[in-house]
Structures are given as structure tokens and as C-alpha cells.
Amino acid sequence: MSCYLTSGKHLNLYWAFGTVLLLLAVTAPVAMTFGFLGAMAARSQHLVLRLIGKGYTAMVRGVPDIVFFLFFVIALDQGIEYLNHLIRCPDWTDPVRNGLEFRVCPEAKVPLGASEQWVHQFYGFMLAVLTFSLVFGAFAANVLYGAMQAVPRAQLETAEAYGLTQRQVFRRILVPQMWVYALPGLSNLWMILIKATPLLFLLGVQDIVYWARELGGAKTQAFDYPHPDWRLYYFLFLLVFYLAFTRLSEIVLNRVSARLSRGQATAAGEAMRKAGI
């Protein structure tokens, strides 16, 4: 049994948990940054910035995630290789697009065909992080935009009356107060992000669902450990993992929510004040 659970394939499954957690850890802050920039742009006084901010959210939110994951990543990957191709192989005469084929010179491949397997995997992982961040950033931008609009105008006006500049009002009054409005939306996004990680396999990153399916499938004598269909047990294990993880997230988010409500001009903040917390 212990031999079975420590086979190379199982180690891959355990590594995949690390990959998923790492993806979440990297994607969440990057998506928040995209979201914040998007929301700022959408509120901007300049028409161009406003169009960029609103266009970004509208476009990404309107496209089904799975289309985005299938189309955007390939387009991005080929775009990078094409630019690289133009720089490195200016003398290349064969067409890059040949029917359905996409073929740049070997020196322009990213990563190079000769690179180690981990380089390919790292590159795939980075593409995944970027795609997840862009998609979830657009949703976060909308949440943050709404939260910024939700801060009572009286708060901002008071600050203006004290002679604060627009920039100061934004930094010292608007942003600290908006989080409490943004949190429900952001916590939704976090939960969805956790559950969206199996989409990783679409991007060629072998995640926990892939390995669970691979390990759980019925095995013949060609394998060291033949067994019937065990997918149910592997998927139950994943269910427990996801439930535990979302529950943990909920506990943390509730704490953050309580913390953010303290002293705010909201019903929750008022209730806390009355209760003397």
C-alpha cells in the first residue's frame, strides 16, 4: 500500500497539489492588480482610459471562460513565436501559416524544442497564470468598480471640503472604504477561482484532476499495480480537498469581512459599534 501511494505517478499527483496552490497564490494578487487597474481606468476622466477599462471588462466578461482558455492562449503563444520569428529569422522564406499549420523557424520556438521538459512546463504554467489573471482580473475590475461607486458621496465630499486633492481623496478615503463593499464580490471570485483550477489541463498543465483520472482508471497487468476502476475514490479525495479548501477560505474571508466593517458607515459597521466590538 505504501509502495502504491509513493509510486512516481502518485508523486506527480502530490506535486500537482503544489501546482494548483501555487497557481492560486500567484494568480490572486496578479488578478487583483489587473482588476484594480481596470477599475481605475473605468472611472478615469480621460475618455481613452475609460474606454480601455470598460472595454477590458466587457470583452472578457462576455466571452465564455472556456473559449478564452482555448483561443487566447494559442493566440498569445503563436503571437510571441511570430514576433520572435521576425526578429531571429528575417531570411526565412517558407510561409509561417500553411493551411492549418503554424510553423516558425526552430530558433524562434518559445521555449526551444531542445529545452528541458521543465522549461516547457514552466512556460505553460506562466501562460496559465496570465490567462487566469486576465479572466479573473476583468471580473475583479467590475467588482472593484462597483465598490468604488458604492462609497457614499458624502464621505468624499467631506474630504474635498477639507481641501484634499482628488488623488488624496482616492487614496485616503475612497480606497480604504471600498474594500468592505468589494469583499462579497471578491470572495465569490476567489471561490470560483479555486473551483476553476481544473481548467488548467486545457492549457496543458497537468493538474490534480488529470492525475486523479489517470491514476483511478482501471489498470491491466501492463502496470505494476493492476486494479479495477478506482476513479470514484480518487475523485472523492479531490472533493474533500476542494470542500476543505473552500471552507477554510470562507472562515478567513468572514474574519476579513468583520475586520473591514469596523468603524465603517455601513449597517454592519454600525451594528458592531452598537455592540461595542
Binding site: 512516481g8 505517478k9 482508471g217 491491466t220 501492463a222 502496470f223 505494476d224
Partner: peptide, 17 residues
């Protein structure tokens, strides 16, 4: 990597078959 005995991922996690 999912079609034994043509090709499959063995217990060491490598392509085999």
C-alpha cells in the same frame, strides 16, 4: 499516454508501452 499497451504512463510516471 492512455492507451495500453500502445502507450501509457507507467507507475513511475513515465511514458511506456
Amino acid at each position: 499516454g492512455a492507451y495500453p499497451p500502445y502507450n501509457f504512463i507507467n507507475d513511475a510516471g513515465e511514458v511506456d508501452g
